[in-house]
């Protein structure tokens, strides 16, 4: 098996090892879905208006919660040194780790946005679009999060630092992802917003991998 496949397999196994994998983040997402309707009161139509934005808020916060572990444990136990002695360039290591993060946490979270959308009163015919945009958005969050997590390697209060680096960069996917749902609800085509969301994923992919690799190199001082 080649290096990328080996690393991907290990990362996916590690996601379920001792941390419960995506369960924690999914539980957080569902708790938000319970708290918001209870807090916002019984006006269902108001809640439904806000539903696209609230779903995306919950998705971005749940993704954020999982980022601190992305590189920190590898840094602490010497895995990052070992990864530097192998066949993949730093950029590829970041890319594979981010991909594993999306597969093990991003996609389950995207799936979990469906019950959240329903509980917030999103129209049932919007759920397919929600699933697609949430899956794309989670990929953008993983790439951006990889950048933040790599830059915060070894920092005290790394989790907070990651949030400060990453949350502003989460804005464009949130805007276009929620925008696509709002457009569809208003009877307009969600296409343009969807295309811009996909563009966000591509930009996050390039910037996240390059800046993440720079973060790995910086952590070796």
């Amino acid at each position: 098996m080649n290096g990328a496949g080996l690393l991907l397999r290990r990362e996916m196994a590690l996601a379920w090892n001792g941390g419960g994998g995506p369960l924690l983040a999914c539980g957080f997402l569902l708790s938000l879905a319970v708290i918001v309707p209870l807090g916002a009161g019984p006006q269902l139509d108001q809640l439904a208006n806000l539903a696209p934005g609230l779903v995306w808020l919950a998705l971005s916060l749940a993704s954020l919660l999982t980022l601190e572990r992305l590189f920190e444990r590898d840094f602490e136990d010497g895995t990052l040194d070992l990864l530097a002695m192998g066949p993949l360039a730093d950029e590829a290591v970041v890319g594979v780790k981010v991909l594993a993060h999306w597969l093990t946490i991003g996609l389950p979270l995207a799936l979990m946005t469906l019950p959240v959308g329903i509980s917030l009163g999103l129209a049932p015919d919007q759920l397919p679009l929600l699933a697609v945009t949430a899956a794309l958005g989670a990929l953008a969050f993983s790439f951006t999060g990889g950048l933040g997590a790599a830059l915060a390697i070894g920092a005290r209060k790394g989790g907070l630092l990651i949030a400060v680096i990453v949350l502003p960069l989460f804005l464009p996917p949130v805007i276009f992802g929620a925008g696509a749902l709002v457009a569809q609800a208003d009877g307009r085509s969600p296409g343009p917003a969807l295309a811009l969301l996909a563009a966000c994923v591509l930009v996050a992919g390039v910037v996240g991998v390059l800046a993440g690799a720079a973060g790995l190199r910086g952590s070796r001082t």
Partner: peptide
Amino acid sequence: RARHLHLLGHQDGFRSGRTAADELAFQVGW
């Protein structure tokens, strides 16, 4: 670094919650 060197330090890169077999297989393959 990628082909001719081994570095064996105090931090060996083994994840404590996985089995020795899994971790060794990964490191050797890598």
